[in-house]
Design a protein around this nucleic acid. Structure first.
Lengths: 171, 171
DNA sequence: TATTGTTATACTCTATAACTATA
DNA sequence: TATAGTTATAGAGTATAACAATA
């Protein structure tokens, strides 16, 4: 990875102490900000972005085992335990008996969990709208199109965000 | 924070299990990817993104005290110690005597440090170009313009990225 | 023997607060 | 008394590997 790369859009040797305007930098700083805002918005719901990601993935297909869900989210079985514990303690999901395998759990959202997921989506929408408040509707469409043309390193399942599962952001 | 927000661009209640195309999500996922790529690219130089950030800030005005530099980067004095230790051990900067205050250090880049910073900028340019490889020049300009219109929560000094100083990204 | 979920352990990173030497 | 830098300590998070139950 990180071998020779095409260097056409930006000159190769900028002023050493100065950074040219950079899509990478903008996207990185904005992405961090968005993550913080999402975490803040979810706090009243008692969950963190990683829980949101798990609930969302579970809602897409219920009855999955922890392992299956963990593979979808690229999470080690290990880390799934605490995450599922959290959500079960909050009453947002249940570990039910798996019909075919008595070792495994069949994960299922509770009605409360479905409600919280709904609210979490609304938080996400708020973050989106706050972020895009300075854009006309057409500009936002245009921006989405351009972002879609950026090279994604990890064309995994859509909706899977590798950075969503770290520790809660401090500061 | 996170109070009432305008909700015009996106309907407030999407399908609960499905996410509409979102600038926030795209920017967040791409930002995380960019961070990983930068870390990978810097590894051969023996530094991490946070060291890059510190070197860059130091290059802008040398002779600063650790505290002053830490304030620029929003880093507690505490965390500066290990960071400056790293860079001093690598021979990239020096703690010199402060002319006016014998408690403080005057931080200065070494020639090696200047060289490594230069190489780090080249890595950053590589990441930028890889990211934007699918864009025409005009599209990239357009994208930069649109990103600039997104609402920045933290209009601090330009070039300061709050998420740059966490632990090195695993996975 | 392999696999699911769990636990144990060591390790890293962080934050708070002490500490020292200057001011 | 306050400040610059440092160190100590405790806490949170992660990863690796062991473990029990089941396949």
């Amino acid at each position: 990875m990180m071998g020779p790369m095409p260097e056409d859009h930006v000159s190769a040797a900028p002023e050493p102490t100065t950074a040219p305007p950079s899509v990478a930098f903008a996207v990185s700083a904005l992405g961090f900000q968005v993550g913080r805002q999402l975490a803040e918005g979810l706090r009243p719901l008692g969950i963190e972005p990683r829980h949101f990601g798990l609930l969302r993935a579970l809602a897409i297909s219920e009855g999955q085992t922890q392992r299956a869900l963990g593979q979808t989210l690229n999470l080690h079985p290990n880390r799934m335990v605490a995450l599922v514990d959290d959500l079960e303690n909050l009453g947002l999901l249940e570990r039910r008996r798996h019909p075919a395998d008595r070792r495994a759990h069949a994960l299922a959202l509770t009605p409360t969990g479905r409600g919280v997921l709904q609210q979490a989506f609304e938080v996400a929408v708020s973050v989106e709208n706050a972020l895009c408040a300075g854009l006309e509707h057409a500009e936002r469409t245009e921006l989405l199109g351009l972002l879609g043309k950026l090279r994604h390193q990890d064309p995994t399942r859509p909706g899977v965000h590798p950075g969503l599962y770290g520790p809660p952001t401090s500061e």
